[in-house]
Every structure is written in C-alpha cells, then in structure tokens.
Design a binder for these strands. Structure first.
Lengths: 172, 172
DNA sequence: ATCAATGGATGTACTCTACAACCAATACCT
DNA sequence: AGGTATTGGTTGTAGAGTACATCCATTGAT
C-alpha cells in the first residue's frame, strides 16, 4: 500500500461519506422540494425546455421514476408540460414562474451554505478543489461529466447530454 | 461573481452531481449488499463491536432505521448481536465471519474501481484531492469528519464519534 | 421507591426507485 | 401503403430506506 493507494482510500472514504451525508441532509433539509425533484427542476430550468426522456437518460433514472417526479412537480405548480407541435408524443417541460423562483431561492441558499462551509479556504484551494472534482466526475473511460448545469459558465468542460456513469464510490 | 464564487459554484455542482450519481449507482451496483447496510457493516467491523445507538448517532439515522438495518444484516448472517453483560439493554454488534469476508471483498472491489477511475492521476494530485476532501468533510463550525473507517491509517484526522452535519451540498 | 433517561423494537407512512406492461405516436422498410 | 419496430410516456406493482410516534425493558438518579 503506497502513498497513492492511501490517497485513493481516503478519496473513496470521503466521497462515500459525503454521499451518505448528502442523502440524509437532502431528506432533512428539503421538506418542500426533495433533492431529486430539485435536481430535475434545475435541469429543466437550465435546458429551457426538455423532455422527460432527456431527464431519464441524463440522470440514469427509469422513465417511470421521471414520469412520477414530473407529475409531482406539476402538481406543485413548479413545472408545466407543453405539447410539442412536431411530435405529439412529446411533452416539453418548462418551469413555471413559481418553479423558477423556488429554484433561484433554493440555489441562493445552497450557495450561501457552501460559502459558509468554504469560508476559510483560500481562493487557490477553492479553485484547485473545484478542478479536482470536475476532473473526478469526468474521469473514467466512458464517464462523461455530469453537465447538470450546462448553462453555468464555470462548467467549461461539460459535454453532451449523456448519461452519468455509475460511480465507483458506491460500487461494490 | 468573483473567482472564488465560481469555484464554489463548481464545487457545489460537482459534489451534488456526485451525490446523485452515487445514490443511483449504489442501488444499481449493490444488489446483494445495499449501500447503507454496507456502510453500517463497515462501521461495525471497524469498531470491533458497537451498539445500534452509536450507529444512529454517527450516521444521523433514526434508531428505528438502524434497528431495521441491523435486523436485515442479521438475517443475512453478516452481523451478530451479543448481549452486553454490563447493560442488559445493550446489544453489542459484531460482524460474523461471513460479514467480515463480504466486507473485505466489497472493499477490494471498491478500491479497484477507484483505482481505475483515478488511474491517470499523479500521486501528487491524488494526495491533494484526498486532502481537500478530508478538509471539506471536516469543515464547518460543528462538522466533524465522518470517521467511517477510523481504523484506516489514512484517516489521520478522524475525530470522536459525533454525528455528521447536514451537508450544504443538498441543503436548500 | 419512584420517576426520568437510555437502548432498542414495532406500527405506520412517505419518498424514491425499478421493472413490467401498456398506450399512443412516429419512423422504418419492403 | 401496410406492417413492424422504435420512441415517449403512464400506470401497476413492489421493495428499499427512512422518519416519527409509541411502546417495552433496563438502568440511573433523587
């Protein structure tokens, strides 16, 4: 077990820890907007209209799951479905006014939370950490990044709308 | 929006992406040993005997959740409960032989997956990335790291067995 | 001795998810 | 054109994971 292996173990452990906590925190802190719904809504918002199938492909979710998520987002009045004139099978999803507002409020509070947590990091460390995370998420033979926010200017390396790859963090 | 804010946005986005993918991957790739069970089993193994309450506190899980998880681990023959002679309310949890073996096999395959994903990283980058993750997970006013594997020599900064803090990654 | 605190289990309910089966619309192919 | 495959989406069903409330047994404190 050399240094690199130790580092890999640490990365594995810490990413796993993060994922577990994130999940718990999501349930705890999104009483009104569950994590998955938030993610999908954000994607819909960023794409300025996308189809349920796109979401399913992007997030590696079953289309039934997406269908129900969209259903609940619609029930909450955060998303609306518009028929696609070119293909009558398709519903183009758009955030409603309320959806966009909730999203921006949520994003703002998330950003603040991160800012607080990262308050004592130097700009250099922030930049490097961000770069490592990007690299990690894009890594692997066929692992595209997760261009969850392709509209984000910081997302310079986002690729096409491809499915995420199962992550070794939780692979066994 | 300065550089630091951009970096923070990237960190936020990438960690969130990771958490979402990890979740999906967990369900997909742990047919025999669900992620949570794996995590708890690993903790039990590392602690060489711990109580259900410890697990609940450590992972911010409800004790009912832990109780059921332990129940299923026991049903799978991976964990055994031993009465605590000093306190008859307590059950000390220990991995069975099968549990320890499954754990080490799982860990090995996880490590391999990470190794592959990180194969083209320099040792220096690995070390720094690991350090950043540790720092991130330990950050915050009252956010201890998640010493999931305190026995791991790489986990030099693990602290006491305190609950994890809700993570801004998914806080809204 | 009583009453509170602790460790744990159980009842119930909700979210997220997948798989399978299904329907409707479109595309392809001869 | 007609038949078949493909695609977009919904619904039925099932299971994991979780929380909250409640309950029981044991321990501790006054």
């Amino acid at each position: 077990m050399d240094h690199a292996d130790n580092a890999i173990d640490t990365i594995e452990r810490e990413l796993t820890a993060f994922a577990r906590r994130a999940r718990a925190a999501a349930a705890r802190l999104h009483p009104d907007l569950p994590l998955v719904s938030y993610t999908l809504l954000a994607h819909i918002n960023d794409q300025r209209g996308c189809r349920a199938t796109d979401l399913a492909a992007h997030y590696l979710l079953d289309k039934s799951t997406v269908s129900r998520q969209i259903g609940s987002l619609e029930k909450l009045g955060l998303v609306e479905r518009r028929p696609d004139p070119d293909d009558h099978r398709v519903q183009v999803l758009h955030p409603t006014r309320a959806g966009a507002e909730l999203l921006s409020a949520t994003h703002a509070s998330r950003h603040t939370a991160f800012q607080e947590r990262l308050a004592d990091w130097s700009e250099e460390d922030l930049t490097r950490f961000a770069a490592y995370l990007l690299r990690y998420n894009q890594a692997g033979p066929s692992a595209p990044s997760d261009p969850a926010d392709p509209a984000d200017p910081a997302d310079q390396t986002s690729q096409a709308d491809q499915p995420d790859q199962p992550d070794p963090a939780t692979a066994a």
